[in-house]
């Protein structure tokens, strides 16, 4: 495998510090990542017809105020969209990360009869293609009157099979059961052991999954669109989608501005949480 060869080759002079090739690769990848962002930001300042003529441009233009006017027009309320999205995404993130860690803890720390069956079920749930399931889901939500209710979007996140799977896989080597036992000797209850001993160890994993959960929920369009029919409940992606309207009447400039604005909170969340995905965070608690 070529990868290992490269890794081996570079490793010889590693002691002296990082190889310049590492930086070259990283910078190229970084530029590739920045490219769509820069195009998006530039397009936010360009007019619809400029974008139709050349959708990819690295130079900003002068239409930012016009785009902002369209954006803040009658149908688009960026502030309320932002808060709605924030409520949903924060709720989803909390539910999925906290409860998945708890479920993973149950799967690892305790020896119960249905444990293996439960884990298999979680894996199975994860494998079912989502498109058709969603039909049953929204029909059900309509039936029980959960439309225009954020809880219909938040609470299902308590059962996030993929996050549980990740937490379990992470916890397997990272959590020493001796630590749990030590906690018991100190007289801590099981729930307290989870909150005070397990969670600190799981910080990098929780931060990772929190980022993914937040980003996915923030960008989710399909279910919010079908379940939220009142303007005051619209999330950011719904508002962006509104600007697209119809193929001959898409306000591209405003769409890109809205996209840029809706990405900013994600960057903030990511920057905040990525602090926890660094060496040293988890180390303190792991013993043995």
């Amino acid at each position: 495998m070529s990868t290992s060869k490269i890794a081996l080759k570079h490793s010889n002079d590693m002691r002296k510090g990082a190889n310049p090739i590492i930086y070259i690769v990283c910078i190229i990848l970084g530029l590739l990542s920045l490219f769509p962002f820069w195009v998006m930001v530039c397009n936010a300042t360009r007019s619809t017809y400029e974008i139709q003529a050349h959708a990819i441009s690295f130079l900003p233009s002068v239409s930012l105020p016009t785009n902002y006017e369209i954006l803040n027009g009658k149908t688009f309320n960026a502030v309320s969209g932002f808060f709605n999205s924030l409520i949903v995404s924060t709720g989803v993130t909390f539910c999925s990360v906290y409860f998945s860690t708890l479920t993973a803890f149950a799967l690892i720390a305790y020896n119960w009869k249905l444990r293996q069956a439960f884990f298999t079920l979680i894996l199975a749930v994860m494998m079912i293609p989502a498109q058709v399931i969603s039909i049953g889901f929204y029909q059900f939500m309509y039936k029980i009157g959960m439309t225009n209710n954020f809880l219909a979007l938040i609470l299902p996140a308590i059962a996030s099979p993929m996050t549980v799977f990740f937490m379990r896989q992470y916890m397997l080597p990272a959590l020493s059961l001796d630590l749990v036992a030590a906690g018991r000797i100190d007289g801590a209850g099981e729930f307290r052991i989870f909150n005070q001993i397990v969670i600190p160890i799981m910080k990098p994993a929780m931060a990772t999954q929190a980022i993914f959960a937040f980003v996915n929920s923030w960008n989710e369009l399909f279910l919010p669109m079908i379940l939220l029919t009142r303007k005051e409940n619209y999330t950011m992606p719904i508002m962006v989608s509104l600007l697209k309207g119809d193929i001959y009447k898409t306000e591209y400039g405003a769409v890109y501005l809205a996209l840029t604005l809706s990405v900013l909170p994600l960057l903030v969340v990511y920057l905040t949480l990525s602090k926890y995905i660094v060496a040293g965070v988890a180390l303190g608690s792991v013993k043995g």
């Binding site: 409860f99 479920t103 720390a109 305790y110 020896n111 009869k113 444990r115 059962a159 989870f194």
Partner: peptide
């Protein structure tokens, strides 16, 4: 302790 396994999986 097995009951905690069930208890903590309950929300899911």
């Amino acid at each position: 302790y097995a009951k905690y396994g069930y208890l903590f999986s309950l929300p899911f």
